[in-house]
Amino acid sequence: MRIFLKSKLHKAIVTEANLAYTGSITIDKALMEAADLAEYEKVLVVDNTNGNRLETYAIAGDRHSGVVCMNGAAAHLVRAGDEITIMSFHLQDKPTQPIKLLLDANNRIFKNLTQLELVR
């Protein structure tokens, strides 16, 4: 078994950083569904603005709100206005085609980058 990319939300803009919350990343529920992310699923967050990387878990925000909020101590590493990539992974024997979604400046799906065929 190996760990493969399952889904990716690329170029999300952080709308809020909430130090007072106890942890996680809040993501618009519509984006979570489009990326096949479950609530409380572990995610890797890469900050394209400053290079920080961290692991946390996803919680659902209001549907179609565009919310992407870093919560808790991670708000020291990822701030409002930063551009981030959110990735989830799964354990499988062989790779499957991941969901890759490019977001616009309002955290709406701009383009589905998922290829029709898995390149090997």
Rank of each mutant, 00 (worst) to 15 (best):
T114S: 09
A12T: 05
D82C: 02
A17T: 02
E39V: 13
D28S: 12
R53K: 05
T96F: 01
K11D: 12
N52T: 13
V68A: 04
N107H: 06
E41R: 04
I27P: 14
A74F: 04
A30N: 09
R79K: 06
A60I: 12
E117I: 04
E39T: 10
N107K: 04
D36A: 13
G66Q: 15
M1N: 13
L116C: 12
L54R: 09
V45E: 14
A34Q: 13
A80E: 11
R79N: 11
V119S: 14
T56K: 03
T49L: 05
V14W: 10
N112K: 01
M70L: 07
K6M: 01
R79H: 15
I3S: 12
T15K: 08
A35Q: 08
C69D: 03
M87P: 00
H64V: 08
V68M: 04
I84E: 06
N18K: 07
G81N: 04
P98M: 00
T96L: 11
A17S: 14
T49Y: 07
A30M: 05
H10N: 07
S88Q: 00
C69M: 12
N48P: 04
T56G: 11
L44N: 02
L91D: 09
N52D: 08
E33C: 11
V68Y: 01
A105L: 09
I86F: 15
A38K: 04
Y57G: 14
I3W: 08
I86P: 01
T22M: 15
V68E: 03
I109G: 00
